[in-house]
Design a protein around this nucleic acid. Structure first.
Length: 281
DNA sequence: TACGATGTTATTCT
DNA sequence: GAGAATAACATCGT
């Protein structure tokens, strides 16, 4: 699935295709995708016009004339926008079909069916959105904020970075990349990270995400953004997926371990865990 | 063949 | 409350 840069790429690609179009009707062959009853979802969005598409963390927010559609692509969700006269009925793993005006079909496709779609009248009605901390690019995300949040957390820094209620938008790939870039061990407890390291974390995080978005998002395995636009950033990954390969900084061998059930790639030489008694700022 | 792994999040446990 | 385990599902590689 899409990480934040892919979500942004999907939004950028989708905007010119569906904004100002009206949803004529909605069909699904897998109602569980919806967080509510599929018939009530249909009645809520029918005859509404798509006004804007934005993002918070990895949630996609589609603003309608009245209310919002909140979409999370989870692991493998993606969109297609096709002409209604094409053979869209035959697409594999397509689960939701938004029939738009001017003979367009906006399709939600999800091999693993992990994604979610909901309609809400107001953004604060959505529990997933409510849980999120500051988005990666939200000015409220500062080193100080991160430091304060880390004080009560003994979990590995990598797990802390993946906690969407702290920072919204970091996924497994970018957590691995980020820690490699600033040379922190993924296993180091969050409450041993110094404030100056929080500053570097925030700075490098934005730099990493910005350059990934510029390159159209990462593609690993099955992901393609709408209309088959494929990201190119996977060529730029420094550690993720590079187990047994030489570290690009020191040539020693990249290791892979499990942290909180997620594959974590790192260099034992460059990313040594610094054990500290307490911590100084 | 069977099992483990895959970019995520919410829920349920201890 | 914090943190770990598990579930939702399909596919691919070992």
């Amino acid at each position: 699935m899409p990480e934040l840069p892919e979500v942004q790429t999907v939004i950028d690609t989708l905007k010119p295709l569906i904004i100002d179009h009206t949803i004529v009707d909605v069909f699904t062959n897998y109602p569980n995708i919806f967080e509510q009853d599929d018939e009530s979802f249909r009645l809520k969005v029918r005859n509404q016009t798509i006004k804007e598409i934005q993002r918070k963390g990895k949630f996609i927010i589609v603003r309608l004339s009245r209310g919002f559609i909140i979409i999370h692509l989870r692991m493998e969700g993606k969109f297609y926008v096709v002409d209604s006269t094409s053979d869209w009925m035959t697409y594999k793993h397509s689960h939701v079909f938004f029939h738009l005006d001017q003979d367009l079909v906006w399709i939600y496709n999800d091999v693993r069916k992990f994604g979610t779609i909901a309609f809400v009248e107001n953004l604060h009605d959505h529990s997933g959105l409510n849980r999120l901390g500051f988005d990666v690019f939200d000015p409220g995300l500062t080193a100080d904020y991160l430091y304060q949040k880390s004080i009560s957390r003994s979990i590995p820094i990598k797990t802390f970075l993946l906690d969407q209620s702290v920072i919204a938008g970091i996924g497994n790939i970018y957590a691995n990349e980020l820690l490699f870039n600033i040379q922190l061990s993924p296993t180091q407890p969050a409450n041993t990270i110094k404030k100056v390291e929080c500053e570097r974390l925030v700075e490098e995080l934005r730099h990493l995400m910005t350059s990934a978005i510029k390159q159209g998002g990462t593609t690993i395995r099955s992901y393609t953004s709408s209309l088959g636009v494929t990201g190119l950033f996977q060529l730029s990954l420094s550690v993720h997926g590079r187990e047994h390969k030489p570290c690009q900084r020191c040539q020693s061998t990249i290791k892979r371990i499990k942290i909180a059930g997620r594959s974590s790639f790192y260099c034992e030489q460059c990313q040594k865990s610094k054990l500290r008694k307490g911590r100084s700022v």
